[in-house]
Design a protein around this nucleic acid. Structure first.
Lengths: 248, 248
DNA sequence: CCAAAAGTGTTTCTATTACACCCATGT
DNA sequence: ACATGGGTGTAATAGAAACACTTTTGG
């Protein structure tokens, strides 16, 4: 199917400049999505990113972020969600637009502008089957292999954005199962900030926020005494998510 | 000039998904830039945004951000700089990518994805001639008229981003002339944060950063005593700009 | 000499950090 | 009974906020 750029009259009209200076025949571009998918590995207590291995030329055998193209009849956000679903099988995932990468030669195969999104998933929800289908692997952030194009830059920027975001918004939880212990949550924050945190200070501050509900149920695998599970108080969560807040 | 989407072989290749699921024939889109241009009016001590009036249909007579399209052979950043120059005549301006707005129907005249940038300029450097040519006007942020498309949302997001950015990066200065008094600088910060600041605390903190150099020269228009002019210490400025910092 | 803005320190309060012991339980 | 992680409070420090008077000088 061929796609023709219509010469004008239904001028897309963002400003008069395009009329007065001849943008009627503006170039159309391929618009891609690239997804930085973060997961928390509770075994190693590391933050990891999901990468896929290209099995075709060019750049065959190299690692890459999950990507795809924006269709004409879907929003950029929808495209990102669709592409995330392709690799993870997951919907309703925390996802945030990161940045639009627009260098002329960023994609070696032609002019492609890419909008990067990062998302946080609970690594345990991630299907092994889909993982194998896509030759996907989780890499710790300090052991990222060589990536194609500007994907390393995307990943770096995503990491910085995540650190900054987590300081003001309660999204660290997105990396954990529904119910979690305070220790698990602390590990998540330690992994994101790449620094150890004081247990007592952490516990106090996170509980003071009033967004955690303590369950009458204990996790007994990692200690004899057992640690209480917590879940979110969705009401408070939404309120704080909207207003922004000082977190940790 | 007509532009044809090539059917494939030099596949733009962001991931194998596009091959395995038929993205060879991906849609090409118009990619626009919209610029949120902030200026500080030292008369009214207000932060203002520069808007242009559309003088053609559709949406004739409505106010709009300055915009244009990304060309195939220029980076998205370059396109933004080019479009900023068209309205302001200025180059080497502080400019930061804000967000990519990608709703399907955001532009009533067709599918256009827009990457918004915001920039900070010294309002005094802005040529009246260019302003008249483009029917441009400065509006205080609390008196923004109805804007086309999603431009209000862009402006709102830009304001929030600016507030957040200024808290960690020394960019408030971009809104002022080369040399400025501490009072002028304080007014800028008060306008951005929409809150009065304590003069002594402000002065102390800003000077402690060590990025201001005091000149042996006074501004004598707004007081008999006269207030010393300051300029940047570029060295320190760059260092802090790079590292990020706690600002105000 | 007076009006108007410039310049300048100290105290209070709040938030952050550092730090160590007893508890509960499964084996 | 003991090994293991769970759970808890306080004191010290640093940073932020509140606050008012003296200085300069053009008219």
């Amino acid at each position: 199917m061929l796609d023709l750029v219509k010469p004008t009259n239904n001028t897309p009209a963002s400003s008069r400049v395009m009329n007065s200076e001849g943008y009627q025949k503006s170039d159309r571009l391929l618009l891609a999505i690239d997804c930085i998918i973060f997961g928390f590995d509770s075994e190693s207590k590391q933050l990891k990113a999901l990468l896929i291995k290209r099995d075709f030329e060019p750049e065959k055998g190299k690692w890459s972020l999950m990507g795809g193209f924006v269709n004409k009849n879907e929003s950029v956000d929808d495209a990102a969600a669709r592409i995330l679903k392709q690799l993870t099988g997951l919907t309703n995932i925390y996802m945030e637009q990161l940045y639009c990468f627009g260098d002329v030669n960023r994609d070696t195969a032609g002019r492609v502008v890419s909008v990067a999104y990062y998302s946080l998933i609970n690594i345990a929800n991630f299907s092994n089957q889909i993982q194998e289908d896509h030759e996907a692997l989780w890499f710790p952030l300090n052991k990222i292999p060589t990536l194609i194009f500007d994907h390393r830059e995307m990943l770096q920027k995503a990491k910085e954005r995540l650190q900054q975001k987590v300081a003001n918004h309660p999204i660290g939880f997105e990396l954990l199962p529904n119910k979690f212990t305070l220790q698990q949550l602390q590990y998540v924050y330690e992994a994101i900030y790449e620094t150890p945190l004081d247990k007592r200070n952490f516990t106090r501050k996170i509980l003071e926020l009033g967004i955690l509900k303590k369950l009458n149920q204990k996790e007994k695998e990692s200690s004899r005494k057992g640690a209480f599970y917590y879940v979110f108080d969705k009401g408070q969560y939404n309120k704080l998510e909207h207003e922004g807040m000082k977190f940790i």
